[in-house]
Nucleic acid binder design. Structure first.
Lengths: 249, 249
DNA sequence: ATGTCCTATTCGTCATATAAATGAACAGTA
DNA sequence: TACTGTTCATTTATATGACGAATAGGACAT
């Protein structure tokens, strides 16, 4: 039942048929729909989803650009090994994290955050301009204000971390704005559990304060603590899930 | 003179017309060819490069997937702001680093490496399997062996760092395999200057030794030193270039 | 000045035809 | 048998032409 209709494709997420098909195929690939059987041919895809070959080809081209598939004449289109998927493409990341059983991936993502964000905070403490500082403080204030609101606090949390990344003035760190935002939004089903704990206002305030005061080392350690706490909490959750045996770190 | 011919497109880098056009357009965009004027319409692009609208559309779709452009009816295709380009797409990164005047970007990339690779080394010290350890040692041996060879040492260096990233067993760190490899290869024009210094065999050996001995902290600090040295050297080069005024860091 | 409607432009989609690439089967040869 | 070159079928790659849908911007009326 991987077939869809044009109407469904439009609804899905895409602004148009191509994006809808892209989304459907992306989800199907990351959930392993084509792990045993081969990827359908252009003609089959077009027929299954009730769209033209043009739409099919352009969707597949976008999948190619994201590293999920490669296409060659006679061989057909083949799903690439996971190692060549572009995990920092927000579409790919969203597809992966919206799957079931992606807690481990989310944990690994937070491992990455614990490498990235402290360094970004240190850079921001040196390089952030007035606008960045204002955005960081605004995010913090939003968190304080939304301390009661349901999911507003998630968006406030995102705004804070995004502002710090932007403040680093390094485009590679700034790139993680979208990635972090996507990851946090895509993993609500897991983070709900943690939300109450992770949204530690004082810890966030410590980061903001250090950055505003232009203290890189303090900013680094404060952010390190912030992300590490989330990571530890995730480990705890995972250990509970595993019953008793905690595997690693 | 941004026009090309089909033959040139095939030669460029692409296996076919679509990839050739993708490459030509990607380079043109990152070099700011369309910063003042608007991006050409489908019909114009097809005419300028002597290809059909199908090829044009599929190339533009790939650019869309990489975040370089967005397309809407009547509005046309527009180049997105740099902040939404996917810097961790190897194509985009290569286009950017092959530009002139990208030393600053390369420095910022090494800032990222100094955040990523030490953490990856620490993880590898805990999680790397026998194959990973063998690959790390192999990379080190290749560096020793190629100490005389001209550019072989670059590939050996890449192999070493890639092996460490892979050994982290974290797909997000592993993702940087391609990114780091692309960056190092794309920046030969700058790294030639540094090569002699950066290829410090003892420092690399220290990292490998710590990982094999399962000492995460030692691996982290050793890798940190390795990348920081490159970063410092780049700062020095940049300062020389700027005459006398050193700006930051 | 404001809101409504119209129209030209551009991407979006569809359909069809032909070319190019390549894996596999096959035939030929030593 | 083992190797080599050829043919063939399949699938993507490219080309072409047509029509639909959305909308920016102007014309127009109020």
């Amino acid at each position: 039942m991987i077939d869809t209709t044009p109407a469904e494709l439009r609804l899905n997420l895409g602004r148009n048929l191509t994006h809808g098909l892209l989304d459907a195929l992306g989800r199907a690939i990351v959930t392993g729909q084509y792990d045993d059987g081969p990827f359908p041919t252009e003609a089959e895809l077009a027929k299954q989803h009730g769209v033209s070959r043009s739409v099919t080809r352009e969707a597949v081209k976008m999948l190619t650009a994201k590293g999920l598939v490669s296409a060659r004449p006679r061989q057909g289109t083949i799903v690439q090994p996971r190692s060549s998927w572009n995990l920092f493409d927000t579409d790919v990341l969203r597809w992966l994290l919206n799957r079931k059983f992606s807690i481990e991936l989310l944990r690994q993502f937070n491992q990455l955050r614990s490498a990235i964000e402290p360094e970004a905070a240190a850079l921001a403490a040196v390089l952030a301009d007035d606008g960045d500082l204002a955005a960081i403080n605004a995010g913090l204030e939003r968190m304080k204000a939304a301390e009661t609101g349901a999911d507003q606090i998630l968006e406030a949390d995102i705004a804070f971390h995004v502002a710090v990344l932007k403040g680093s003035k390094n485009p590679f760190f700034a790139q993680f704005q979208d990635v972090v935002a996507t990851a946090l939004r895509s993993s609500i089903q897991f983070t709900n559990r943690i939300k109450g704990h992770s949204a530690s206002i004082p810890d966030h305030a410590a980061v903001a304060h250090a950055i505003v005061k232009r203290q890189p080392e303090k900013a680094r350690t404060a952010m390190k603590k912030l992300v590490s706490d989330v990571l530890d909490l995730m480990d705890t959750v995972e250990q509970e899930k595993n019953g008793k045996a905690a595997k690693r770190r």
